[in-house]
Design a protein around this nucleic acid. Structure first.
Lengths: 237, 237
DNA sequence: ACAAAAGTGTTGAGCGTACACCCATGG
DNA sequence: CCATGGGTGTACGCTCAACACTTTTGT
């Protein structure tokens, strides 16, 4: 089919920065490109928006088609539309952020040669990403970092039932911090009401005293926020 | 000219939420539509992106062309792409936020029948805006509100040289607060270094002790942030 | 009993709100 | 002189980082 228009033609694509934590490392989902341009390089999952489709559903669909990863909610990040960002023509890409609990094994998808979770530090250090996807990834990671402060975003990195220590691990991995376990526990549990909800259950099996299991509470925003700077572990000076 | 494409055709537009403060009221810039659809209704300034043009420059250009308002920096807000949001066809709009110092008189532009600064409360209460521009405006105002907390955005609502009281008025108008003059002064001047810079000059003419004049400092982010909840004027209980 | 992890108590420093009060100008 | 707005001083209360300590399990 060939489409025609009186106005300049743009293709609109969606790209997804899908983040998770795998073996104490923040990882992003990338697919190896099977076609030109940038054949063989890694790229964020994404693709063209259909004519009758809204942006967020398109992002969900592309993520599922290319990687097999299903996600319920995903948040718009920003839109990238520099002329020349895609050699095939004028495309505008609406980037989205998706957070995936813990470390699900990457599944191969339909129209991508290869799918992998790779550490973001590696992806950002090198130039292995196609198009302007390195910029998009960097923006997505920065967004996640700052949303940890004042939203319950961290709870979306852990399974449905989680311990406070697991939640703290999310902060430590993403911020590169080493938060004080005691203070963190208090802030999260008693601080802002509804951030986490206690289930009656406890985690069994691990060493030491069994931890209580929580689930995500109704409160989406944290008051007061958790701070990146303060609350580090270290000598009192 | 007629354009053709193998992919679904989108038109990409930019819309601008331009905010300023006029007689103690937060106002947005709107243009009266001279053409169908929505002829005669108010709309945010905006229009189609050119083929070889990046998004932010397109927004600046449209703002200038339609309203005569020139702006240097403007920030991307979000992208709106629901099918059916524009009856002419499938359009995706990238919304931007612009902040204009104080109250410049609205100038008439070239291809808009009428241009006006109107209070955002009025615009948001009624359904007088075309397309989904009411949603876009609401999102833009909310963004401004929250960026006052942790960035120097407030300084862009005032002239190049301003007094601390004028800066406080920006917060009071946009937040609907009544911040304590003394505490605000201290927080802004001594608190975060570089938020505002002292010029040697003073404001002459007004009643009372002449106020020192400041200009915007280099620091773009506020540490610690100004809080919306705290610092109100009111009885100690 | 011991190790290990979860969770609680405590304390001192620092910050922010709510004011009281002084300063500098115009009328 | 007074009125008006600019700006500083200060005290009380609260929060929070630091870290000691208790609790609860596995081995």
């Amino acid at each position: 089919m060939v489409y025609t228009s009186d106005y300049p033609i743009f293709s609109v694509t969606v790209d997804v920065v899908a983040l998770t934590i795998s073996s104490d490392t923040l990882c992003a989902l990338v697919v190896r490109r099977g076609e030109e341009p940038h054949r063989g390089r890694w790229a964020l999952p994404g693709g063209f928006v259909h004519v009758d489709e809204d942006l967020a559903p398109a992002a969900e669909r592309e993520l599922l088609e290319e990687t097999g990863v299903r996600v319920d909610a995903l948040e718009q990040l920003a839109t990238y539309g520099a002329p020349g960002r895609d050699p095939r023509g004028r495309t505008v890409s609406v980037a989205h952020l998706a957070v995936i609990p813990w470390a699900p094994e990457a599944q191969s998808g339909s129209d991508a040669a290869d799918v992998e979770w790779r550490p973001v530090t590696t992806l950002l250090r090198s130039r292995q990403l196609a198009f302007d996807h390195r910029t998009i990834l960097a923006d997505g990671v920065e967004r996640a970092r700052s949303k940890l402060e004042y939203t319950n975003l961290a709870t979306r990195f852990v399974p449905e039932l989680f311990t406070i220590t697991e939640l703290r691990a999310v902060y430590d991995v993403i911020w590169g911090s080493e938060l004080d376990p005691g203070n963190f526990h208090r802030k999260v549990v008693s601080g802002t009401d509804g951030f986490v909800e206690e289930t009656g259950e406890r985690r069994v099996g691990g060493a030491g005293r069994p931890a209580r299991l929580f689930r995500t509470g109704p409160a989406a925003s944290l008051n007061p926020p958790l701070t990146r700077s303060g609350q580090m572990r270290g000598p009192r000076r």
